[in-house]
Simulated scan of single mutants.
Amino acid sequence: MDFELSKEQKMIKNMVKDFAEQEIAPKAVEIDRDARFPEETFKRMGSLGLLGIPFPEEYGGSGGDTLSYALAVEEIGKACGSTGLSYAAAVSLGASPIYYFGTEQQKLDHLLPLASGQALGSFGLTEPNAGSDAGGTKTKAELVDSEYVISGEKCWITNAQYARTVIVTAVTGKDDKGKNIISALIVPTKAEGFKITSPYEKMGVRGSNTSELILDEVRVPEKNLLGDPNKGFKQFLYTLDGGRISIAALAVGIANGAYEKALSYSKERKQFGRTISSFQAIQFKLADMAMQIELARNMVWKAAWLKDQEKPFTKESAFAKLYASEMATRVCNEALQIHGGYGYMREYEVERMLRDTKLMEIGEGTSEIQRLVIARQLGCF
Rank of each mutant, 00 (worst) to 15 (best):
A134F: 08
G227N: 08
I362K: 12
I247F: 06
V218E: 07
S264Y: 04
R297I: 06
A258L: 07
N298C: 01
A255S: 15
T239K: 09
Y99Q: 15
A89I: 01
A248V: 05
S96I: 03
Y100L: 14
T169I: 04
K311Y: 12
D308M: 03
I12K: 00
G136L: 10
M15R: 10
N333W: 07
A184L: 07
E347R: 10
L50A: 02
D308P: 07
Q292F: 03
G77D: 13
E75F: 01
D288A: 07
L108R: 14
Q377G: 15
C155P: 09
L125T: 05
L112N: 12
K138Q: 15
R44N: 09
L67P: 01
R330F: 09
A318P: 02
E74R: 13
E349S: 14
K154P: 11
K307W: 06
L359S: 11
K27F: 02
K10W: 01
E201R: 11
S317I: 08
L48M: 15
V16D: 09
C332I: 07
I245E: 03
R274H: 12
A184M: 13
E217A: 05
E104Q: 11
I157A: 02
G243Q: 04
N129D: 11
G121S: 10
T366A: 12
G52Q: 02
